[in-house]
Design a protein around this nucleic acid. Structure first.
Lengths: 334, 334
DNA sequence: CTGAAAGCGCTTACAG
DNA sequence: CTGAAAGCGCTTACAG
């Protein structure tokens, strides 16, 4: 099928291409009523639909943004993406999602591809690598917002949970229920990853505040596949923890897997709180106490900030860190 | 910052734009070694990166596909998207995800936008509306593949679960465990939605095969928010079902919510099987018997079919329906 | 109120 | 082996 262009419409409506273009962009200021009608008709008859690629080339903007998530397997990422998409669609923006798998090499590849595709901006869950690349983008005044993680040395709008508070809430809850031997399990700390570090900080601080000494044995930070073994080691300690804080949903899965397999009763044998309000928290037995992140607001805010920046390229807004409040949802696992 | 183009590279390397273009597209056939080196150097020094939009305009292909899911809240959709993205990335394709929310109006809007953006093809979970639109696309020989749902009257490559088998497996399992009063709960049947219809068919057929009369009261098909009420009505029947098949993960959530709230023991008071192997099936108490779909293979196949079609635009491959085998994962809820 | 012309950054016959 | 020129489908000053 022959693709029909603005020229075809122009010919049919017996006007110039410029006029058709004006019409399509609703710049009716000085357009005669009958010209308008004629174009409208021609568009209709020919079934014309504009080629956005061509427009993008000329206008140097694509109404598309890229989102690079660190790990798409987390519910958090999925929900944030959803929120971003919802917001963007309202503004007629499209989003291209890339999964960096926490790998700086992949992250770089995606950034390059996205830029080559001329996306108007990027929301990234930065891996922590590619510092110079990001600095370059910022130098070029290219719109970027970070999600969930800080990168030391890079100043850019960043959406963050109040991570310290999220673990504080959990640990306070444990302590309030009379637990003193409180463990925490997280993914590894190989490179700087904000939530992990901050949540561990929150955990330690609350212990300290209550005069409970921090027990290195009670903190497990290993790759997901190694969690079972690490849990076993920890829970067969002479004096094992009685309560466990799961750093995120993936970790919580592993803990629940373990308690099930070893027939530990929650909370009698082991109290559990998870950060991330997993889908089954409510109807699990026992219902799981969790710390919820305001995921949708966070995603929405990220999109909003990015689209704002895209809107007003010139003005040098300064970058901020936006902290969102976690909320403890008290159920029955503690 | 000034964007640097092929012209800048050409000037710097003291060759023509054409030659640079050849170089960039690895058409080295007749290129002198030193020309090559010079260009390479210039690209390096200027930090040149090609503008894919410009290339797309000329080449009339964007290396981007669109995916329109019916409802992004289902795990199935999320995982299919993931599989599609993985496959596409290997072929250097990008994907734009759109959520039609099961609304034909939104679906149409997205199709139009995607086409305007010149995506090379579309994978859709069709809502069932927009029949003429899809027919038009096919007439234009535009690459489309359907996922999860058939649309009557539209012949296009379609990826489907063997839905009848998925419910058959479940019902056979119930019957094998001695249950006779077997109910099923699904989302509403307002418009033609393949999985719902076929899974109900499978359910009915197996009942029949075993001489168990189909009880309309035992089949609930209502909107998700209404499921609690409908369940209550069904389970307080004088002679309620003793086993329940959940049509998908969202429905399963509701059933588990209900059993929890009303303190029904699974499987003693109510046996349950869910289609979709939910993340918590293994460590739920009791572990949930589910019917798993080969989600990743299905997503991968969809992407593969679409990219194939995009590759060989001319040839009129004929369209097929690809059925994938569900698998019963026997655990403890039945 | 409308049109002719240049240009966005590439690619691709074609000529030499 | 390389370059000049046309063109992809739009938009946008500018002129009238």
């Amino acid at each position: 099928m022959k693709t029909i262009t603005i020229a075809d419409v122009a010919k049919r409506a017996e006007v110039s291409k410029s006029t058709v273009s004006q019409y399509l962009n609703q710049r009716y200021d000085y357009m005669g009523e009958k010209t308008k009608k004629r174009i409208e008709l021609a568009v209709e008859e020919l079934g014309y639909s504009p080629n956005i690629i061509a427009r993008s080339l000329k206008q140097k903007s694509t109404s598309t943004i890229g989102v690079i998530v660190a790990n798409i397997l987390h519910v958090f990422s999925t929900q944030v993406i959803r929120a971003i998409e919802d917001f963007c669609n309202e503004s007629n923006f499209h989003v291209i999602v890339c999964n960096a798998d926490d790998d700086p090499i992949k992250e770089k590849r995606y950034i390059d591809m996205l830029r080559a595709k001329q996306v108007d901006g990027i929301i990234a869950f930065p891996t922590g690598g590619n510092v110079d690349l990001y600095k370059g983008l910022l130098n070029d005044n290219y719109p970027v917002v970070f999600m969930d993680r800080l990168v030391p040395g890079i100043l850019v709008d960043t959406i963050l949970l109040d991570n310290e508070k999220s673990s504080s809430l959990a640990v306070e809850e444990f302590i309030g229920s009379g637990y003193k031997q409180i463990g925490m399990v997280t993914p590894p700390l190989n490179h700087y990853v904000t939530p992990r570090l901050e949540r561990i900080d929150g955990y330690k601080k609350v212990l300290q505040k209550h005069g409970i000494p921090f027990q290195p044995d009670y903190l497990v930070s290993v790759e997901i596949p190694d969690i079972q073994m690490a849990l076993h080691r920890m829970l067969t300690l002479p004096n094992p923890p009685e309560a466990l804080l799961a750093m995120n949903d993936r970790v919580l899965f592993e803990i629940l897997m373990y308690t099930k397999e070893h027939q530990l009763n929650i909370p009698e044998d082991l109290a559990v709180i998870g950060i991330d309000d997993v889908s089954f928290a409510e109807f699990y037995s026992p219902a799981l106490t969790t710390v919820a992140q305001p995921v949708f607001e966070m995603g929405k805010k990220a999109a909003e900030l990015l689209l704002n920046r895209i809107g007003e390229k010139d003005s040098d807004l300064n970058s901020e860190i936006y902290r969102f409040e976690p909320e403890l949802i008290k159920r029955a696992s503690c």
